[in-house]
Design a protein around this nucleic acid. Sequence first.
DNA 1: GGGACGTACTAAAACCTTTTATAAGCTTCC
DNA 2: GGAAGCTTATAAAAGGTTTTAGTACGTCCC
Lengths: 360, 360
Amino acid sequence: MTQPSTKKQPLRSQSRVTLKTIADHLGLTPGTVSAALNNSPAARSIPEHTKNRIIEAAKELNYRPNFFARTLRLRRTYTIGVIAEEIGDAYGAMVISGIEEYLRMNNYFFLTVIHRHDPKLLQTYAQMLLTRGVEGFITTDTSLTEKLALPTVAVAGHQRVEGVTNIVLDHKRAAHLALEHLKSLGHKDIAFIKGQTLSSDSFDRWNAICEVAQELKICIRPELTVQLEGTDSTPGIGYPFAKQLLARKHPFTALFAYNDISAIGSLWAFHEAGLRVPEDISVVGFDDTPGAAFSNPPLTTVRQPLLRMGQIAAQTVVDLIEGRGEYVPEIAIEPELVVRESTGPVSSRREQSTAGNVKA
Amino acid sequence: MTQPSTKKQPLRSQSRVTLKTIADHLGLTPGTVSAALNNSPAARSIPEHTKNRIIEAAKELNYRPNFFARTLRLRRTYTIGVIAEEIGDAYGAMVISGIEEYLRMNNYFFLTVIHRHDPKLLQTYAQMLLTRGVEGFITTDTSLTEKLALPTVAVAGHQRVEGVTNIVLDHKRAAHLALEHLKSLGHKDIAFIKGQTLSSDSFDRWNAICEVAQELKICIRPELTVQLEGTDSTPGIGYPFAKQLLARKHPFTALFAYNDISAIGSLWAFHEAGLRVPEDISVVGFDDTPGAAFSNPPLTTVRQPLLRMGQIAAQTVVDLIEGRGEYVPEIAIEPELVVRESTGPVSSRREQSTAGNVKA
DNA sequence: GGGACGTACTAAAACCTTTTATAAGCTTCC
DNA sequence: GGAAGCTTATAAAAGGTTTTAGTACGTCCC
């Protein structure tokens, strides 16, 4: 409503070829040209050779339909609004890649906004997307508090908001995969790095871990538990917390980290402390981001199919928009354990010389 | 032109409040309402109290102007197209953050597309952005081969395309800052990690380094030079190349890496080899991404003001669009050396026991 | 030779804004 | 009392597309 008014009109020459241009060119009317180009029902009665003439002319004149006029008339934009917390981390980027791929294949487009956990910015941007005619929303790692007015799919949103479809990892299964793996290798003293309070997966994942641990008779000890803080999206985020675990001098033979980057940061801390992975400590990450396979040693991790999750989110929201498929409150995604080289059996030698006993 | 046709009309209820709604409500005409709400020149003759009534009613009915109708008429979208190579790395994310900030403050919006170095996708998306009415382009880390039809600013684009404004770091100054720093600490045997061929800064930065090295009488030896490969955007990318440097058994007392993540990966490799930083090897990174300050030890690095570069890019393109300021082919950005703890003087002890002599 | 039907289109409305030209009603002034 | 001028609006066009209803013309059939 209030835009900065500019004196000088930019007046782009643009693609000034309209339906009328073509119509005049051929001695027809815009309506006919439109029907032919869109092959609409009205084009039934247009003879083949006229259609061809029209298509030919459109190509020749390099006709591009005016998106705004069309949208105004059709009330369809074929556009999704993607609301992300941040770009620049592997998690969000992979989900967005999946979204991008699906939408591109299906002739949809998307607008991305980032809100950095600022509720006011979120509000502003949601409104803006609405104005720009998006027909649905996908959020990632964003805590929606209220229902948006359009079909909405939340990737890793755990608020269970009415009308919003949540794409969530089956965290219980994930916890089971990781802990069962560690248990089968003989690990009993397992340390944990929990996620930041703000990260929307933190709560559910931790709950699942606690439940599963109980089922598997694995004891979770507060002395072996730390919680991430900060928003750094490099392994640097895990390093100090792993050091902290070591400093507590409570022995442990394995670590289950909240995500790959904190796991990788921990590898480093262990290295520095003279501990070998996996001989002295086994480490399990979470996500299977691209870095995981290239860490040293390559990281055993619970794989979230992030690309796939993005695709599913996109498909779900498009189906909702097009009236196919109906609303479900939740879609569970199956995690997968990727065993690499950061986990191994508890060695008898290590039973004496566990992490906690080594000088940190 | 060919969209998937949907049977069921979604028929959003949308903000079905138009100018006509308000006009009818007040017994006026849409034209009057429009004039009042926009405070256009035509509103001169509308008395204050009528204006107030109109504004009041608009607020009450929650009127939102239809973006598409308005754009159709005004031929302005106040939108910039941002073409990025990838999101998910700190570099692109920070530049985009800067862009976002400037544009938001100035009532512009932006559409982001990513092309992952796929020229076809780039082409498709550029066309799509044009269709969507963007009034200018900003590219990051993208090698444009031809001029786009609108004002264009390239961040870290080095093709010097006619009509495109390049925002480039003063690489000579950057090289000077880093090498002078190392030289002043007594380093003579300096290893280098070059950037990937695809990364658009690689070429210029390396040239600058070579020039400056010559000026400072620092010898660049091929045995102490490696080149990054791959697209991983975590420190994992630097690790193997640092190992490779060590494996060559040529002594060096300092490393100047292409970017922070490869520098951090190198730190790790050195650590692993039992070398201390900075006592045994000094390491200088590039970029000053958020992780740099939190690495171990905190990284000395050449700071690129990425946020600022994004802001400048946005400002430049907006100025171009609005007819303020005129085209310049290049805007140089001053780097800054941030000295942290990964660099230190060459110690006499180290002179005997340099990196190359240690078992890798 | 005239009604029915088919072919090949056209005309016009609708989507919602902005803007320009114009009009209606009132006051003022000589 | 009528022209001039001011105030307060309005009507209509334009922007480009899609769609519905309709028209003009020809052919066929009995």
